[in-house]
Design a protein around this nucleic acid. Structure first.
Length: 592
RNA sequence: UGCCCGAUGGUGUAACGGUAGCACAGCAGACUCUGGAUCUGUUUGUCAUGGUUCAAAUCCAUGUCGGGCAGCCA
């Protein structure tokens, strides 16, 4: 049932790739995933990762991981590291073989292709033994990009512009040519070299493509190719005073790496003519990459922009980028969602050019479907109320047999201690119960999972009117396998032996926002934060949970799916990944 | 405002000129020692108006609505 075992997904981009394969247009299919290391990856990136690595996987190709790091002001190695970790996790056991990396420190080779000088940096095809590998970096191509820029100048396709930023904008808006547009190639070259040498301050000059200032597509109105930035770069240090713009760097980075299909999101659609123009203006000797665009992901009840996520982190609304409520890959992972489930989700939503809003229920379904199959069942009580079985001998301990996973008999069984004093869930008892309440109520029966049918005889209350304990009698013949075990009892509830229970901190997460579209119509997304997105309780757990392992997933029966938190140690900590579907809660809600 | 892109049930998608299908959500039922899972059934849809065609969700035109771009960000 792994999504990767279902028939390969189909969408308009895969159709294009399949067509190119049929025409034998390329020797190999080569995609890339090119995040800018200026923040943590989120579920939208997961969609892109699954698309790009999925295509590589389905067509026998490679997908390069590339840092699109051409803006020194915003980027940091912290983000580089997190991106590597998140990508490795998401493709782990699925598309590791497609991950394109390069030898550490390696930059493009100058070589001859079809008789012309060429720059090329191939991906390491197989995991080179012992060789240290790293992702690709656009900043590793700064020398080559600079070379290309000079070529453009020599061809009369680029010029150094002295207009300050505001005037550049104004000229472009008015479709006016820059007064510096017709400098000679010699002068442009001289000025560009001096820009590189650091002779001018930030913003003093820029390198611009000479295309068409009257173009209806503003990106063709002599766009900037290089800007001056006296700034330290996380990867190239202080080597550069000029940095290429996205449009110049991206298409050429794709070319240098031999990318065949450069897949990005819809907002770059209007950049495509520029992408092609730059590549076609350089008489490059190898086949050119092509850009294709798809709709970015939006999910209900969350926000996706890096700016907003950064704000949540910086203002302490959440505990960090990997807070389990965050839509970041690291947050989703910490929450306990398996990579397979996230991939299944990405598969389910499809790839189109329509900007829709995906219901978070689709994600939740993918998570439940996965966890239902893998999670080990355990008994835990989140909000305990004490039950005393008046006809069960004090001091007597029985062991009942509990199945670890009804979906997978091979997971076996375990023993759970049972005794006179138990904890049950507060929600599983009601004094004034409505007709369809199938759990414990005064004078009513309920089955204790794996153990006895009990009847509630008496409710003991404290001075404040709160319930202190429930005094019940057990049908001593009704234990699983016993004489009256098959009595029809509508409600089965979970429990923990009070004397044997171990405590665990359990973090109950809910959606971060109360509105499906937190930032709808320019609304301040922080005004619709869900105040109850995190509740922490101390749960009473069956002893087997003492050995909970971080890589395993657990179902606390009838409550939901839980995963040990990374901070869990001597003190047990669980994150609730997701609740069970709850038909009763829905019924109850309808009544108001 | 200009340019670009899009529009199929509540939501996300498929149908590539020939029976509008799938998933999620919803509803109803069966089963159940998890009100879970599983199983069965089921409500709801081609933005509008013209045109081409034997035949249009699909092609064309116009309109409407929605999204994107107009950073020396990516």
């Amino acid at each position: 049932m792994e999504p990767e075992n279902k028939e390969a997904p189909s969408d308009f981009i895969r159709d294009i790739v399949a067509g190119d394969v049929a025409e034998k247009k390329y020797a190999h299919i080569h995609t890339r995933f090119p995040p800018e290391p200026n923040g943590y990856l989120h579920i939208g990136h997961a969609k892109s990762i699954c698309l790009n690595f999925g295509i590589a996987r389905e067509f026998g190709g490679i997908c390069n991981l590339r840092m699109d790091d051409t803006n020194p002001a915003k980027e940091d190695v912290e983000y580089v590291d997190s991106i590597r970790e998140d990508v490795n996790w998401l493709i782990g056991g699925w598309a590791e073989g497609q991950l394109g990396l390069k030898e550490k420190g390696k930059t493009p080779e100058t070589m001859a292709s079809n008789g012309s000088r060429d720059f090329y940096l191939p991906a390491v095809a197989e995991r080179a033994r012992g060789a240290a590998l790293e992702p690709f970096y656009a900043s590793d191509y700064f020398d080559q990009l600079y070379d290309y820029a000079e070529q453009l100048i020599e061809r009369g396709r680029a010029f150094v512009c002295d207009l300050p930023p505001e005037e550049t904008d104004e000229y472009r808006r008015q479709a006016k040519e820059s007064p510096w547009r017709n400098r000679s190639a010699e002068e442009n070259l001289d000025l560009f070299r001096r820009m590189k040498a650091g002779e001018f301050p930030d913003g003093k000059r820029s390198l611009r493509a000479k295309i068409d200032v009257a173009s209806p597509n503003v990106w063709m109105r002599d766009p900037l190719l290089y800007r001056i930035r006296h700034a330290e770069h996380h990867h190239t240090g202080n080597r550069w005073r000029i940095y290429p713009m996205y449009d110049f760097a991206h298409c050429l980075s794709d070319y240098i790496e031999g990318i065949t299909h450069s897949i990005c999101t819809l907002e770059f659609e209007v950049h495509r003519p520029l992408y092609d123009w730059i590549l076609e203006s350089l008489s490059l000797p190898r086949r050119l990459p092509r850009q294709y665009e798809f709709a970015r992901l939006s999910v209900s009840y969350t926000v996706m922009s890096k700016r907003k996520l950064l704000q949540l982190v910086e203002e302490g609304v959440v505990a960090g980028w990997d807070d389990p409520r965050m839509p970041t890959i690291s947050g989703i992972r910490r929450r306990g969602v398996p990579a397979e489930a996230l991939r299944a989700f990405a598969y389910n939503i499809g790839i189109t050019k329509y900007n829709g809003l995906t219901d978070v229920a689709v994600l939740e379904h993918a998570v439940r479907e996965d966890l239902n199959k893998r999670a080990l069942r355990r008994l835990a009580v989140l909000r305990p109320v004490k039950v005393v079985l008046t006809n069960f001998p004090a001091g007597k301990v029985e062991e009942v047999e509990a199945v670890n996973n009804p979906e997978e008999p091979g997971a076996g069984t375990r023993k759970v201690p049972f005794s006179r004093e138990l904890f049950i869930e507060r929600d599983d008892f009601m004094e004034a119960a409505p007709p369809k309440f199938f759990r414990l109520k005064p004078g009513g029966d309920a089955r204790l999972k794996y153990a006895y049918i009990i009847r509630c005889d008496e409710v003991i209350k404290g001075a404040d009117g709160g319930i202190v304990e429930l005094r019940c009698t057990a049908d001593l013949d009704s234990r699983t396998g016993g004489a009256t075990a098959n009595r029809k009892i509508k409600g089965t509830i979970h429990w923990v032996s009070a004397a044997h229970a171990i405590d665990a901190e359990v973090r109950l997460y809910d959606r971060l926002f109360t509105e499906a579209e937190p930032d709808k119509d320019g609304r301040d997304f922080k005004s619709v934060l869900n105040p109850d997105s995190l509740q922490v309780v101390t749960a009473k757990c069956e002893p087997a949970l003492k050995e909970a392992r971080p890589e395993l997933r657990y179902q606390f029966e009838r409550l939901g799916y839980f995963a040990p938190d990374k901070d869990s140690g001597e003190k047990l900590i669980f994150n609730r990944t997701i609740t069970m579907r709850d038909a009763w809660a829905k019924e109850w809600q309808k009544k108001g």
